[in-house]
Amino acid sequence: MKQRARIRLVIIYVAAAMLLAGTVGPFLWLVSSSFQYERQLLNRPPQWLPNPIVLDSYREIFEGAVMGEDSGVPYQSRIFLRSFANSFFVAGSVAVIAVMAGAYAAYPLARLRFRGRQVLLFAILASRLIPALSLAIPIVLVAKRIGMSDKIVSLVFINLSFILPYVIWLLQSYFKTIPMELEDAGRIDGCSRLQVVHKIILPLSLPGLTSAAILAFLLTWGEFLFALLLSESPSSYTSTVVVSLFATDVDVSFVSIITAGVLSVIPPICFALIFQRYIISGLLSGSLKG
């Protein structure tokens, strides 16, 4: 029996090692490449670890942002930090607004009886089935006509609508887990519905609200299609757009491209690892519970 247990453990750890290499290997290679000289990247066989650790490409991005054209670094490197800030602004605003508007919309769906409740729930879910590409065409057309193209506010607005159904779904399933007795007790003490939401539901839903906000931030951070179509200049480029400008340009050095890639995934990866519990519970309840 002991022998069998040992074999089981060996098989498990071989599989686990393969999984580990598969999940973090490609990303670690990107990080390692970003700390090398351009000429080292062209070595055959490749150099696994940077030696020495070269920070030139990172410095380029900071110098480019500060000195502009005088720095002599490629255009994409100069505008990268600005796009990074834009991404933070868009993703942060979407997370805050989506959770606020989403919580108020989720409460009646979870707790109130009214005609059209099922219809509303279905409409919110069904809106996610329409492919973004088909909506993008009229949205771009209208945004250009009314002068809202190339504005970062438009990106907040558009992303909001794709995130909101998801947030509402997640929050209403969370609200349902809060015992009804607590709400009744509040009502007996004379709370209005609004006070019930503010004093009982929201404070007790903090973990659910946190999951929703983090997921909203991460999904918006990675959004590409609308960021691409609704931006025309560095003032509204998000980091995913600048990454695509890097990746499709053959004249920029490999190490600059790679560094931009690494920098633009640092926020989502840090968030994901720090808040992994919230994310996993949010992902599971968002897609499962009715």
Binding site: T23, F27, G222, F224, T240, V243, S264, V265, I269, A272
Partner: peptide, 11 residues
């Protein structure tokens, strides 16, 4: 597992 999940599709 969340490392690949968090990487935006463009990156």
């Amino acid at each position: 597992l969340l490392v690949p999940w968090a990487i935006p599709s463009v990156v």
